[in-house]
Amino acid sequence: MMKDFLSINKKGLITMLFALILAKSNACEHQPCLHEPLTNFGVLCDLCSCSTSSGSMGFGTLNNSNFIGFRYIYQTFESQNGVFQNSPKSKEIFNTYQLWAQIPVKNNFYLSVNLPYQDLNRTLNQTTENINGIGDANIIAWYKLPLLKKKESGETVDYNTTDQTTGHSLLFGLGVKLPTGKFEELLADNINPGFQVGTGSFDGIISTGYSYSGKKIGVNTLLSYYLKGENKNEYKFGDQISFSANVYTVVNAKKVNFMPFVGVSGDTYNKITQYGETLNDTNGNIINTSLGAEVNIKTFVFGVNFTKPIHQDLFGGNVKSKNRLTLYLNYSL
């Protein structure tokens, strides 16, 4: 039965994800659709949950909680193919094209869905290798808990009045990464095992976050744990812990809202195992800084995010993550 599930037609999955997105319109007929700032939560491994893809990249936006959109991520890595200083180095360029959405379900419950297409290139000794295809889809259910306070009259609390929001909220997420992307065992021998379209495994995602949204300033934080599964090749990427924190400000102009932000994020990876044995030099950690902005024009949101590593130790120092650029265009629902 599991085998049949793994062989689900990928076109069918795309149809399912869009059906979830379209179902949002029905949800809005029965409840108000929320558009308050949610967060720039880092809840998904945007490539394929491999060890060098960052789980702290973010899934939501600073501006709105309900949207459907397109995101592009450009990443580069440099890998040392040998134990000597003059050993040849390979350059990997990861292009990720994502359909993504955040959909209200009921009250403070939300769904995040993400379907990537991967186009990965690796150049070594003037020879270029390319793999591409649909990556691993993600679905996460979220519960947002607004922190409330009672209205006060002088120093007396009036319990007959309606609660007020404080701008502070907590978020809890539980989700799964589906093995919709292809895993190629031959590629696992690369210095950078993240050079894969998919992992071939079911992975669990557990997240908790905090956000504050004021009139002129906002803060978002998130901590996520990725519980990696073993694929049919008995290959298991190491479990992963990711964190992110962003501070943004709101600049209002005529018909346009401009929201610049700065942030810090990081990932810690456990070692990879294959056939029950732990592989050496397959763990690591990385800390990034980021700078970006969102522009909101009516129902459209354009975002840009530039990320630069400030500390990293990946695969025994054999893999170096370079700068990353993210662009996205969303339509607010």
Rank of each mutant, 00 (worst) to 15 (best):
T76W: 04
G200A: 07
S87N: 04
V83H: 00
L34V: 04
G292W: 00
L62M: 09
I93W: 03
A293L: 15
Y117I: 11
S213F: 00
I21W: 09
L170M: 13
Q312P: 09
F5T: 01
S25C: 05
S56I: 02
F258T: 06
Y248F: 15
A19Y: 07
A23P: 00
T61N: 12
Y97F: 14
N233Q: 12
K151V: 11
I297N: 04
S290N: 15
S290C: 11
I286Q: 05
F67N: 08
L171K: 10
N66W: 07
N86K: 03
F5R: 04
Q80R: 10
N257S: 14
F94K: 06
I241Q: 07
F183T: 03
T221K: 00
T249D: 07
E129M: 11
S53M: 07
Q164R: 09
V113T: 12
N270W: 05
N26L: 15
G60C: 03
Y225R: 13
H35W: 05
G214T: 08
W100F: 11
K322W: 00
G198M: 10
Q312H: 13
G60F: 02
S207E: 11
N132V: 00
L222C: 12
E294S: 14
L99E: 10
I191M: 10
T15Q: 06
L44I: 15
I191A: 06
K11D: 09
S265E: 10
Q240V: 01
K3R: 13
L329P: 00
G167P: 02
H35S: 12
D313M: 12
Y74E: 08
I93C: 02
G276P: 13
N125A: 14
T199S: 15
N160I: 01
S207L: 08
N107W: 07
M1L: 14
Q31A: 06
G316V: 11
N220P: 04
K11F: 10
I21F: 11
F243N: 03
D313A: 10
S265P: 01
T52I: 04
Y72A: 04
F261V: 06
M1A: 11
G284E: 08
F300V: 04
F261S: 03
F300N: 09
L22M: 00
L147A: 07
F172R: 06
F5M: 09
R324C: 06
D158A: 13
Q240T: 12
L22Y: 02
T273D: 08
N233H: 11
F94L: 10
Y212A: 11
E36D: 14
F70R: 00
H168W: 05
L17E: 13
I68M: 01
C50E: 05
H30I: 13
L147S: 03
A27W: 01
A141G: 13
F94D: 07
G204A: 11
M259Y: 02
K149E: 14
G263S: 07
Y143D: 06
L174V: 14
K89E: 12
V83M: 08
D136C: 06
F94Q: 05
C28P: 02
C48Y: 02
K3W: 03
N220E: 09
G135D: 14
H168P: 02
T123N: 14
